[in-house]
Design a protein around this nucleic acid. Structure first.
Lengths: 250, 250
DNA sequence: CGTTTGGTTGAAATGTGTCAAACTTTGTGG
DNA sequence: CCACAAAGTTTGACACATTTCAACCAAACG
């Protein structure tokens, strides 16, 4: 019963795919045979950069990464936080040159998978192709929700919404217990993801804390009042398209 | 030589797909055989709504539509403008319940295509499946760029960026001549797409006009100084992943 | 321990939002 | 084809959320 046994059900990718689609046992076993190069990365490392033409994709096994873009005058917009089971640059399978960058937020264990291997698997297992499709489309759905978040909601609601989403997504892959999860995010990163200033994010967090909604210290998020937080954040998890909504808190 | 002859090269969908991927003659012909129900819609009509579970997708043939979401307190974020050749809800092929709505901006001619017909075509023509994939991924790339636009750029740059994108996309499907295109967009819609207020958008447009960058009247956009506009908007068309960059103005 | 990184605070500046009215254009029925 | 209504645009004055700048503090770290 070693800690490192890789059975289908504790493999991050399988866990993630299973949370958004149905996979047969065959397909799960096939996924386990994917050849991958495992790499340990420290925090704040670039994995791929806008403009690259990678021949492989990156699966996050452990830790938190983020997808981001920089404006011409050096401001960073974080487009997504990527957690265990995510393949943030799966799109490079069809779009040769990347239009955004990917980097670690915390130290990470990642697996690089050659495009050829993914293509091969997709041809042999239609269900896997379909699940990967779904995963990509859900990523896009999350982009849309973030756009609305950033474009239309106040800083207070924006931050509340992001925290709701983070908890639900981490819970869906088994990274949250009760209402607590280790996000590893700094205030700077939360700010760049919500499109507000670091200073203002700090003040917004203080309000969330003093309203008794959350506790957040050293990257560890604890939601103290889930229902109130969802209301504050105007949060409805439908856009996450989870197969089993009971994975959500409450 | 009737106006309504539908040969492969003036069909909006084929034109769009051909602008982002390579299609064989066979594949173009196959696309022409897709059974579709053509419908004329007046402006400001809802096509599908968030929460729907459609069994078909909607191809825009003529006119402008938009994808959008509403916040809990009734504010609208426009997520994308959809022009001839777009299939904004293609995602419903894999994601049963829609997480955003689709409506017309101007009067439109649209074609509804049953999911079964699309699936069938994709199985028989791998290149079509691949082109549709690419189209969807490019839509997501545009979402990402919009996120950065809304989250990190000033109102002035945001609007300039959106106008640049609009011109390039319309040009790519043959809807712009020189530096002019019929967008049919009102100021309200530009405002909801950039996440600023209608009043402020109006003032921003005035600045763009007085700087000699654009002329915009009754939905008709004319770019007077393309290079200056791209600089103002921090615009780099790489994210549009056009097959043939020479389609861009300049 | 000193150094770095991340978090917190205050005061002042400002870009954008709000509200309300006027103006202009477009569309339409008489 | 006029006249009216509706839709869209423009203006002004003011409010306010968020940014900016700069300093300080606390925790993590080698």
């Amino acid at each position: 019963m070693s800690l490192s046994t890789t059975t289908a059900d504790n493999h991050p990718l399988i866990r993630h795919l299973a949370s958004v689609a149905v996979l047969s046992e065959d397909e799960k076993q096939a996924l386990l045979t994917l050849p991958m190069q495992i790499v340990e990365l420290s925090k704040d490392q670039e994995i791929v950069r806008e403009g690259d033409r990678p021949g492989r994709s990156c699966l996050i096994l452990e830790g938190v990464a983020c997808t981001f873009k920089m404006t011409g005058d050096g401001k960073r917009q974080i487009l997504a936080f990527n957690i265990a089971g995510d393949v943030p640059d799966l799109l490079s399978l069809h779009l040769k040159v990347l239009d955004c960058s990917l980097g670690t937020v915390t130290s990470c264990r990642v697996a690089f998978i050659q495009h050829a291997a993914i293509r091969d698997l997709c041809e042999r297992y239609h269900g896997i192709a379909s699940a990967l499709w779904r995963m990509t489309l859900i990523d896009a759905a999350i982009f849309r929700e973030w756009m609305m978040n950033i474009g239309q909601r106040s800083a207070f609601r924006r931050v509340a919404h992001l925290l709701c989403e983070t908890l639900v997504r981490m819970k869906a892959v088994g990274l949250a217990r009760d209402y607590t999860c280790e996000t590893g995010l700094t205030q700077r990163e939360l700010a760049d993801a919500t499109g507000i200033t670091g200073v203002h994010l700090n003040r917004t967090l203080q309000q969330l804390r003093s309203d008794g909604l959350i506790s957040l210290k050293g990257g560890t998020l604890q939601v103290l009042n889930w229902q109130a937080l969802t209301i504050a954040g105007d949060f409805d998890p439908a856009y996450l398209h989870l197969k089993d909504p009971s994975l959500e808190p409450v």
